[in-house]
Nucleic acid binder design. Structure first.
Length: 786
DNA sequence: GAGCACTGC
């Protein structure tokens, strides 16, 4: 019957045959859109092309998504409000469908605007864009595209739906604070609270008041949407509407232990084996905190499981145990998708796959076929101590939201079970609702520079969803002021403006920008790239001495920065040799990344007409490089004093030691370092020797001696200063060394205690490791909820 | 004589 009607109207009004006939932007209804979706012609192509068979097939499966059934409600809420919040659990289809719904409402394809949908991860932006392009029956990179670092898969004037990383949208905002290109901006996965998403929420809230035509959608998986709802209420009497979409996953039974577990690794291994013996077929996912713990657990599980088979081959099936963490080579990461091992014969029990993973399996990677999840309740999390400006990793209890996410991993293909290795009481009373947002756990010097560049004058009173500690902001402002990125009134300097354009920490940006003055910008470019990628050194547990020997061949004794330069240059010279990285114990993946980053930074330098230069004399070149390093890293200098092998950081007065990976052949009096890491003790990592005269010459305001506390560092600098001015050292400056030693020891203790207090404490207090003994231990689980 | 949760520009 519709056919007949269409034919009639066609005759009199050819426009009525168009799929979007009668659509008024932002006054579109669900009924209109459903009709357009069923239409034979694709409205987003020019000229209109017929839909393919694949489109129709995909549409049929889209129609089954929970979010599809909420289409009418969505268009009502979207039409009536500027900002809306969408809460949808996994499987709701919100990430793929909501942006498409918006496309039908905004009609951005016909008005030159775009719809943006942000993702915290690059792979997600890419894969979702690919899927949506298929669903919309267009070529990826044309009407539907994505934009991530190193890859812009969009076409100017054609792309109207763009998936992108949150960091990418933030970058765009720096050059276009009103984000004029967009008609609607969707922030997806907002519950993850990445630094970029948090800043974008603050910017968009302010932008909504300036741009009445801009619509904003915040999408989140969990109930903290209520917090966002409050935050995004533009007037105090009205809340931003909350739009809920049910998920589509299988039920997961949750079990808790009856008593707290003193040793979570041991308990986890025991639980995996218990599942293997007693539960139906299905793969197991175990969450642990780090590489070493994971490799260790894999060995033990395999050993115990093999024991079980040897004792009685008919009782359990074979087991395969696969470690998973980010620094694993991609080939080995692929192993998680291997099928479980087969049964030993027709009458034997089936095999089982066990994946032992870090948090990477919580959000970034999905393993289908997992039926059992073992969750000890911990993960390694970043914490920041602004007082000593140190970020470090600490094993901490996860949040309830995180525990829920982990449990959900058991219900992807069929009903599953989740074993939590903590009591229900601890879950209810000890775990935080949400993971602490990143903005509260990070050094913000980069973010503060971005905000200032974005025109935010008053950083303390900026409308954050969660405001960072005052001291964290002060520390960032102080650093930027010393780097001359901000003047004394907190205004952005031309240098600061340029620094903000580089995708680097401010120290590295400064270093790169000044490098032409030292005639070594080619080399600094390489070093900067090498310092912005993950660790390049590969050191397998069973080949440590070979790896160390290989590393020694690259080592430049003047400093680790020069060693990095050396590795990169040799890597480039040996690119024809496929085995080179492998046989030299360096990470090919990290080096390839460095190459990529270097090219991007080089383009930035060319844009600012920063000259690329080198010095041919190696000795002079190496000295120039170390001098240039001072310009970026003068706040990260340490002086050798106190006990044997110990250094004191300048002004922050932290007792530190050279990291064992450091390649310096002596212990120079003055060193500059890239990182302060707090592991078994405080270390400085990636270290180069510097001369005190350089400190006084290239960073005079930071090394203004009147700002120093009395002590060995100040006296040593004073000596250099006096020499420079042609004066001799006075007797009053000399003090016995023993006294300084004592002071430094007491100080060290006090500061370590202080640092401990700054970290958050563990909810599982009884964290005393006990001997690993499978036979004598049993776990009792109580079933709580379905 | 050590480690590297994860992501992003």
């Amino acid at each position: 019957m519709a056919e007949g009607k269409k034919t009639i109207s066609n005759k009199y009004n050819p426009l009525a045959a168009q799929p979007l006939y009668g659509f008024t932007p932002r006054k579109v209804t669900g009924a209109q859109v459903r009709k357009a979706l069923q239409h034979d012609l694709n409205p987003f192509t020019k000229p209109l092309t017929p839909h393919t068979a694949q489109y129709k097939r995909l549409l049929a499966s889209r129609e089954k998504l929970p979010v599809y059934r909420k289409m009418d409600d969505f268009f009502t809420v979207f039409s009536e409000n500027q900002i809306i919040l969408i809460v949808g659990e996994t499987g709701s289809g919100k990430t793929t469908q909501i942006p498409q719904f918006v496309a039908y409402s905004d009609l951005a394809h016909s008005n030159g605007k775009m719809i943006a949908c942000t993702q915290p991860r690059r792979v997600a932006a890419m894969s979702v864009a690919k899927r949506v392009a298929e669903e919309m029956d267009v070529q990826l990179g044309r009407q539907v595209g994505y934009s991530i670092r190193f890859e812009d898969m969009t076409e100017s004037g054609i792309t109207f739906l763009k998936y992108m990383t949150d960091g990418m949208l933030l970058r765009e905002a720096m050059n276009d604070p009103d984000l004029q290109r967009y008609s609607t901006i969707i922030l997806d996965e907002a519950h993850e609270r990445t630094l970029a998403t948090d800043i974008l929420m603050g910017l968009l809230k302010a932008l909504a008041k300036r741009r009445a035509d801009l619509k904003i959608i915040i999408m989140s998986a969990t109930v903290d949407a209520v917090k966002f709802q409050k935050y995004f209420s533009l007037r105090s009497d009205t809340k931003a509407p909350l739009f809920k979409v049910p998920g589509r996953t299988h039920p997961v039974e949750i079990f808790y232990t009856q008593d707290p577990e003193p040793d979570y690794v041991e308990a986890a291994i025991r639980t995996v084996l218990m599942i293997h013996r007693a539960e139906d077929p299905g793969d197991i996912l175990l969450f642990l905190t780090g590489e070493e713990e994971i490799e260790d657990a894999c060995r033990k599980i395999k050993l115990e499981a093999d024991d079980l088979i040897n004792q009685d081959p008919s009782s359990v099936g074979p087991i395969v145990c696969i470690p998973l963490y980010s620094s694993l080579p991609p080939m080995q990461q692929q192993r998680i998708f291997d099928p479980a091992p087969a049964a030993r014969g027709p009458d034997y029990p089936p095999g089982r796959k066990v994946v032992v993973s870090t948090n990477i399996a919580e959000t970034s990677l999905t393993i289908d076929g997992v039926v059992y999840v073992v969750d000890p309740g911990f993960s390694e999390q970043k914490v920041y101590n602004p007082r000593i400006r140190v970020e470090s990793l600490l094993v901490s209890p996860i949040s309830k939201a995180s525990a829920q996410q982990r449990a959900g991993r058991a219900g992807r293909t069929r009903p599953g079970k989740c074993f939590r290795l903590y009591t229900e009481k601890d879950f209810m009373s000890q775990l935080e609702e949400q993971t602490y947002p990143e903005i509260l756990r990070s050094n913000l010097s980069n973010t503060v520079l971005e905000l200032v560049k974005l025109g935010i004058k008053d950083l303390v009173r900026f409308d954050y969803v969660d405001a960072p500690a005052f001291e964290t902001l002060m520390r960032a402002l102080e650093l930027l002021n010393f780097l001359k990125a901000l003047d004394d009134d907190g205004n952005l300097t031309p240098l600061g403006s340029m620094m903000a354009e580089f995708p680097l920490d401010p120290q590295l940006a400064e270093l790169l920008i000044v490098s032409p003055e030292f005639k070594c910008s080619n080399e600094i470019l390489t070093i900067t790239a090498m310092l912005s990628v993950p660790n390049i050194w590969v050191r397998p547990a069973n080949q440590r001495s070979q790896a160390d020997a290989a590393k020694a061949l690259f080592t430049v004794p003047d400093g680790d920065h020069l060693t990095l330069l050396n590795v990169y240059n040799q890597y480039m010279q040996n690119k024809f040799d496929k085995n080179w990285t492998w046989s030299n114990y360096v990470s090919g993946r990290a080096l390839a990344q460095a190459e990529n980053v270097r090219a991007q930074l080089q383009r930035n330098m060319e844009r600012f007409e920063l000259e690329l230069m080198s010095i041919s004399d190696e000795k002079k070149l190496y000295q120039s490089i170390r001098q240039a390093l001072v310009c970026g890293f003068f706040m990260q200098v340490a002086h050798r004093e106190g006990e044997e092998g110990s250094y004191l950081t300048v002004k922050d007065n932290q007792v530190v030691a050279l990291h064992p990976s450091c390649g310096l052949d002596t212990q120079p009096e003055w060193v500059l370092f890239n990182e302060f890491v707090l592991t078994t003790r405080p270390y400085i990592r990636t270290v180069s020797e510097v001369r005190p005269e350089w400190l006084l010459e290239f960073a005079p305001s930071y090394f203004d001696l009147s700002t120093f506390q009395d002590g060995e560092t100040k006296r040593a600098l004073q000596k250099v200063m006096n020499k420079k001015m042609g004066k001799s050292v006075t007797a009053a400056d000399k003090r016995p060394i023993t006294k300084a030693k004592k002071k430094s020891k007491a100080k060290k203790q006090a500061e370590q205690e202080d640092h401990g207090r700054a970290m958050h404490s563990s909810a599982h207090s009884s964290d005393v490791p006990s001997a690993y003994n499978l036979q004598n231990m049993t776990t009792t689980f109580s079933q709580i909820s379905i």
